[in-house]
Design a protein around this nucleic acid. Structure first.
Length: 270
DNA sequence: CGAACGACCTGCAGGC
DNA sequence: TGCCTGCAGGTCGTTC
């Protein structure tokens, strides 16, 4: 479900709702997520205060008095803030309850999401190998050119490799390539520095615009405040196969790369 | 080492 | 109505 802009939207929505709250209890109804949820999650979190909400790639980092909760939503995960706890329904796997009666509920039909608690997030194995944040200063045309040198992998797959860039998923990798006029199947190592410069700019723009729009709601995404995003109105190629390119009118094509759909304009993207 | 691929899941839409 | 196929916002570990 969520890529970087959606997770950032959730972070911003939840921040005012849960920071400073004290965790009274945690109920784990289903431990079989992407990684098994630790049996002791409740014991680790009970009594802790939520201090801060951060984000790294697509991970939401919930900092508490004694550590950090790493939450990943996978393909279908969502978080709901409930001011009063209602009866859990299908796929409501985890409830983090607060003093005062509200609760943060984790729901994930496909169970590709995950929850970890760590005292040293900077050393956590899921975070240490991640590439730079695309909206941070370590991400630049020089960097992208450097890590693409002599790579034969298709640029679309390269952009979706979290070790190269953190947090870019299928929608925004696809859309950034359209904006930069680069064919998704072009080998990463066969793109000029000038075009990488445009690509870096396109990635930043598309992510910033999506965050400003509250993310993309294709099916049922809602941010931390329960509201859907509206960036889907701004998608140029994603999900539009057969429809005319907004720039040139040629039908948008769909291809499969690494078992994921890519969309592009055969005239605008080379 | 880089690159490709299978694996992990449920739900939904569409064809027959 | 049911059954089948393919598709879906991710990413890790294995294999070549």
């Amino acid at each position: 479900m969520p890529e970087l802009p959606e997770v950032e939207t959730i972070r911003r929505g939840l921040e005012p709702l849960i920071t400073r709250q004290f965790i009274s209890d945690v109920e784990v109804r289903e431990r079989r997520l992407r990684w098994p949820v630790t049996r002791n999650l409740a014991g680790l979190l009970r009594g802790q205060q939520i201090l801060q909400l951060g984000r790294r790639a697509k991970y939401l980092l919930i900092k508490t008095s004694n550590g950090t909760l790493l939450v990943h939503l996978g393909m279908s995960g969502s978080l709901f803030y409930l001011s009063s706890v209602s009866k859990p329904t299908t796929h409501d796997h985890i409830d983090i309850s607060f003093r005062g009666g509200s609760c943060l509920r984790f729901n994930d039909p496909r169970r590709f999401g995950s929850i970890h608690f760590t005292t040293q997030p900077k050393l956590h194995r899921l975070l240490t190998k991640l590439g730079p944040e695309p909206l941070g200063k370590d991400f630049s045309a020089e960097y992208l050119t450097h890590v693409s040198r002599s790579r034969r992998v298709a640029i679309k797959n390269h952009l979706m490799n979290g070790q190269i860039i953190a947090g870019l998923g299928n929608i925004y990798a696809t859309e950034a390539l359209f904006r930069a006029g680069i064919h998704p199947a072009r080998p990463a190592g066969r793109i000029s520095a000038a075009r990488f410069s445009g690509l870096v700019q396109a990635i930043r723009e598309v992510l910033n615009e999506a965050i400003r729009s509250g993310g993309t709601t294709l099916k049922d995404f809602v941010g931390g405040d329960g509201r859907p995003g509206f960036f889907q109105q701004s998608l140029n190629v994603y999900g539009r196969s057969g429809d005319p390119c907004f720039t040139c009118g040629v039908p948008i094509k769909r291809i499969t790369q690494s078992q994921r759909s890519s969309y592009y304009c055969p005239r605008c993207q080379r």
